[in-house]
Design a protein around this nucleic acid. Structure first.
Lengths: 131, 131, 131, 131
DNA sequence: GTGGTCTAGACCACG
DNA sequence: GTGGTCTAGACCACA
């Protein structure tokens, strides 16, 4: 479904949370559709089940996932969308980090944009393949 | 000189390291020029001197900074430049993180590029202002 | 595993780093094998855990050790070997120091070599004993 | 006369002290002969005069150098020789450090001895050239 | 339990 | 004043 990068300083549960949000906004995971069980996803990603459970918990709290007791976990029927302010903040922070990393290794805007396009393509392609 | 972002999952010493590398590749800090003392920069950034010292030491191990015993720390006369493989890896990782964050909040490529340009402008402006 | 020499001008973290490298090149620690936890080794050597952590981190940056998050530290599957230039430099520096120390107390080459052989035997014996 | 290695972890005053002892045991500096002034040696070695003064002070205290007020500093008429116990200890420590460094980069006894011989030759040659 | 980060504060070597 | 090392002790992320 998505990859975990162990060398990314971000905690793994956060990478999982972000990965699921991505699949939902892309439509790869539709409202009402079931998501893998904690155990299955943990096995897939080769991480500890506790870590997956933590991401699921946070997403349920945020109203993005819904747990049906004894049945499984599903994408909420009307998944909460990040509000405009939050979206802008997340995006700006991430852009700053990317720009800073690029400049620190001497890369200019044009090359940074080219590599960014490749990353988008790769992530969206995953969607197309499954969709 | 640059800011520390407490919400960035990257450790502070790494943010400092990256910030200095950025100022050097941008030319804001020239080869042979002195960098702030550990204590001064620590006071500026409101972090512990040990944290700054860690960044300085990594940079001097890497050949980017040069320490003159009891005198101070300087940009190396010929600062080591990251090799191509390393540069590509850093850039790709950072691009993946940015793309993933953008998609997770429903942002498409065009908007992500626009925000990225703003970030570049802001970081390069800091350079121009001092330069 | 190895001893810390408080009268050695080299910092403790460097002595630990060197000690581990030695055990790895001798084969006492095999690729994939686990190394003592930071806390355990710190207790053994009677130093602060931070000091051990510093050595471990440098070694993992160098590709000699590999850390598995929350699990422990292991000898890398393919521990990075020092390249020829680095090896030669380290060796020549160390030889100069030894020769200088010997001559400063009036010891000639033949005696210096004899004592050196004894040191080698002692260090390699530690390996044989465990191996 | 001799070289200072700024990357040697040993303090510079100690390197100077050792260097002078070496020249004396080799006979390059004879009992009663004058040694360079603090200022001259400091300029030669490109170190702070305080650092040279510290080495001279220690050597005077040890009875290796003798200061004649207003005249200069001289090698003592009967320079104190390190006693057997001290000599053995210094030598063994130094040998251990050399053996450890060699093994940590995967060098065996035979190569270590060869490089050691080269170091001895170089240091003794300095003597011959001046002598 | 594991390693990673950070703070606070001390002492040393050098200029 | 400079950087370097070390200790002590806290908190976090992960298994």
């Amino acid at each position: 479904m998505f990859d975990i990068n162990p060398s990314d300083p971000a905690p793994i549960w956060k990478q999982i949370e972000e990965g699921l949000r991505r699949l939902i906004t892309l439509g790869t995971l539709q409202p009402g559709e079931s998501v893998p069980s904690v155990r299955d996803l943990a096995r897939d990603l080769r991480v500890n089940p506790n870590t997956v459970a933590r991401a699921y918990q946070r997403l349920s709290d945020a109203g993005v996932l819904a747990v049906r007791r004894g049945e499984g976990t599903y994408v909420a029927d009307e998944p909460t969308r990040p509000n405009r302010a939050h979206r802008t903040e997340v995006l700006r922070d991430a852009a700053n980090r990317y720009a800073s990393a690029a400049l620190s290794v001497g890369v200019q805007l044009d090359e940074a944009v080219a590599v960014l396009e490749a990353s988008f393509d790769k992530l969206v392609a995953v969607h197309r393949r499954k969709g």
